[in-house]
Design a protein around this nucleic acid. Structure first.
Lengths: 120, 120, 120, 120
DNA sequence: GTGGTCTAGACCACC
DNA sequence: GTGGTCTAGACCACG
């Protein structure tokens, strides 16, 4: 596990997002152990407490489950996870679309921008 | 001038955005006075300091200008303002699109969601 | 706000429980501010982080809500809170009753013990 | 010997409790061998170390005794064991009753809940 | 080895 | 003043 942290946003929420995305992409499968708190923390050069907070919240959201003395395992598969990730990401996206509208962009221009952003 | 404050985001930035949007929509025109700090503060039930901060930053950005003893007047017109707002909103939008991609949405689904969000 | 911390159980969860109980008893009312993180922390001689964690979880559970720059206010009244507290306390209680049964106590004896514990 | 492990509580203490209850119910009698560490571990899908720890503590408490090369045998009989279990369970029960009181339950409601929990 | 909790203290944004 | 986030590092329980 490996990614670049963006210090302009809360690190713990970036971790949550990355884990969720990894599950959705099949990089982490149902029942598999995710990286240990200490491992992930050192591999992205972040304090273990920060990773622990992210994991704790993922547990609360039902995405992973603690295996005492062993680590954390992926709990739910797409069905439940998708809902959690979708809600988060969708809200952000809808707001962005409305902001574009309020800023005076046309629907056509926004559509073109989606494609452009998507591919590069 | 009135709107519902969303306590989950910085209030001062919501105020800034609203003022900018009002100008772009033509609700506030070049040279016109915007609501006084105290009026806006009481009408949206917010600390006057918060409104003052928003206005201070708008002044710094050249969007409005102080009229000592009178209030604040719109400085930039829609054409000039658009550029700054666009950049801000565009960045947010591109991030949102990429998040959708990472979350496993298809391009087609995203396109449909643009239309849906736009109209609803 | 003032209470004796029991170091044999997680402090943050004792804080959560105390706040909930205070609300249920009417000591803290809807809309009122609860003690600030720093105040409570110093008054019970505990690290602010510990109080912050408790408050953060209470927010997540919908019991209190953050007032940025001001503090935390009591959000829901009995209706919602009762559910949250009841679930917690009830689960604990049912387990205790079943443990008594498994340990060989009679129903009659348990009933008498309820009264005894209640009054003393 | 088999039961469902609850991953939200320490496994070794669940094992201890189960063994004690089995003795009190007469399922395990004085002098009888209890399941071997490896058997119990595999039958409830748990790390053998965990079972070993439970047995070690039961030995320390004088509930069972090691029979080198053979296994562990029940040492105390029901009468002697009862006292230790009772104390443990009683303390838990009293706390639960007080929590119910603090949560605003009435004595009457608690009494009804005892019966309800007792019967199912 | 794993996670869970806590302390101490820093820095930032917000009101 | 308020809370939000993060670091550093300790200690404990569990497997």
């Amino acid at each position: 596990m490996w990614f670049k942290v963006d210090f302009s946003k809360p690190i713990y929420s970036q971790i949550k997002k990355k884990i969720k995305e990894a599950i959705m992409k099949g990089e982490l499968k149902h029942g598999e152990l995710i990286p240990s708190v200490r491992d992930l923390a050192s591999s992205i050069s972040v304090n273990p407490n920060t990773v622990a907070r992210a994991y704790r919240e993922l547990v609360r959201e039902g995405v992973i489950e603690p295996r005492p003395g062993v680590g954390y395992a992926v709990k739910k598969n797409e069905a439940v996870l998708r809902k959690s990730l979708e809600n988060e990401v969708l809200r952000e996206f809808k707001n962005a679309v409305l902001s574009m509208k309020n800023a005076g962009f046309t629907l056509e221009r926004v559509m073109r921008l989606v494609e452009k952003s998507w591919n590069g």
